[in-house]
Amino acid sequence: MPIDDTEVIRARLQQLFATQQLAVVATSSSGHPYTSLVAFVASTDLRRLFFVTSRATRKYANLKGDRRVSMLINSSTNKNSDFHQAVAVTVVGVAEEDTGEKRQATLAAYVTKHPYLEEFALSPSCALICVQVRSYVLVRNFQHVMEWHPDP
């Protein structure tokens, strides 16, 4: 088993993000947590994660009030073997709607990963949300936990 240096962690995350379609994102409203399932894509440097949501959703409203978010991405398959085989990563970060000049390029990457969501992603009623990652908490082998800060 390779030692968990930064490059190994980075490779594990990249592999996980390339193979997983969905993430759980946690927002909050008046201090109360609220979770949602979203299709996501990660930037190549792993500093940012992106998802798309309709501006009419609760999570969008919550993000407007409190930018702090957490996300969970994992490789479980609903089998017993998940306990020793699955990898899970908890993301802690800050989110905001991406309206910058790189928005189109990010959306293109998002649609490349999720081609069936093209209409949804490009709809004027939807927002591209960028999560600036503060830290990753990577869990494997049931209880082996490593924390990584991409921008220490």
Binding site: S54, E119, F120, S123, P124, S125
Partner: peptide, 13 residues
């Protein structure tokens, strides 16, 4: 209510 005529979704707030 939000009427999203792009995606065909109605959200009841």
């Amino acid at each position: 209510v939000t009427v999203d005529g792009y995606l065909g979704i109605v959200t009841v707030h």
